[in-house]
Design a protein around this nucleic acid. Structure first.
Length: 281
DNA sequence: AGAAGGCCCTGCGTGC
DNA sequence: TGCACGCAGGGCCTTC
């Protein structure tokens, strides 16, 4: 579910309810998600003050006093649900595996049916050295992510550009939806060999990635299935997908049949890609 | 070394 | 209405 814009949106929502607060209670309802929780997680969080948040790729980092940060990944189906502590007694939420309660009466639950998410603790001073963050590529919305940087990372890669952009070591934070959307905007076929995305193509792709991510963040991310923001609000960017999950529909640039058969779905590396064969080369 | 496929897990939509 | 099947936003691990 959550790609960079959704993680960014969730993180901003969490910041509004948690930043500066102290954790009165931390609760785990099982010993693990994708991996075991760090030993004594709940006890180590109880009493800590939450100083701030940042995002790295699809990971959120919640900085605590005491020198540690909580590293959170939402996986495929992870949500953060914030509500008054008192509501929880009346209506427990299924698949809430971890929760924080603040002294001022807010409960934030990590809800993740598929349990592909993860939670870990990392020393704040060494966040980037964590095994899950150490190999990540550049942040796509930062100035350091340039066409030159991207084409250098793609050089020699004999894999489709679709697969390369899903590789978090090339660029951090893109997922299946935004890769399809960015390639459409850049006019690049998902089947194109990654190594051939250089020069003018890379120069189109970088701003296309940045624009689609920025627009989605501005819209509050995408809400698919049951995904909602921490405050219960929903994002609206899914209404602006140009190709994702739109197989058979005409694309924005084509007149439709007979000039074009519309948006096509194909499977690459086991995952659906959506593209317009006429616009994307 | 780089690339492809399997796998972790639950829920939902589709078609019979 | 029930059930089997395929598919889903991610990413690690194994195999080739």
């Amino acid at each position: 579910m959550p790609e960079l814009p959704e993680v960014e949106t969730v993180m901003r929502g969490l910041a509004t309810v948690l930043e500066g607060r102290r954790i009165a209670h931390a609760i785990t309802t099982r010993p693990d998600l994708r991996w075991p929780f760090p030993p004594g997680l709940a006890a180590r969080l109880t009493g800590a003050q939450i100083l701030g948040f940042r995002r790295r790729g699809k990971y959120m980092l919640m900085r605590l006093d005491g020198g540690h940060s909580v590293l959170i990944h939402l996986g495929m189906s992870g949500r953060m649900v914030a509500r008054p502590v008192t509501d929880r007694a009346n209506a427990p939420i299924a698949h809430e595996h971890f929760a924080l309660e603040t002294a001022d009466g807010t409960r934030v639950g990590f809800v993740d049916p598929r349990r592909f998410g993860s939670i870990d603790l990392v020393p704040t001073a060494a966040e980037e050295a964590h095994r899950l963050l150490a190999g990540l590529g550049p942040e796509p919305l930062e100035a350091a992510f340039t066409a030159a940087v991207l084409s250098a990372a793609l050089a020699g890669r004999r894999t489709p550009i679709k697969a390369a952009l899903l590789d978090q070591k090339i660029v951090a934070g893109l997922g299946n939806i935004y890769v399809s959307e960015a390639l459409f905007r850049a006019g690049i076929s998902p089947k194109r060999l990654a190594a051939t995305v250089a020069g003018a193509r890379a120069a189109r792709l970088v701003p296309a990635i940045q624009a689609v991510l920025a627009e989605s963040i501005a819209a509050g991310g995408s809400s698919l299935r049951d995904y909602v923001q921490a405050d219960g609000g929903i994002g609206f960017f899914q209404d602006r997908f140009k190709v994702y999950d739109r197989a058979g529909e005409p694309c924005d640039h084509c007149p439709g049949p007979p000039g074009c058969d519309g948006i096509r779905r194909l499977v690459q590396a086991g995952r659906a890609s959506f593209h317009c064969p006429r616009v994307q080369r």
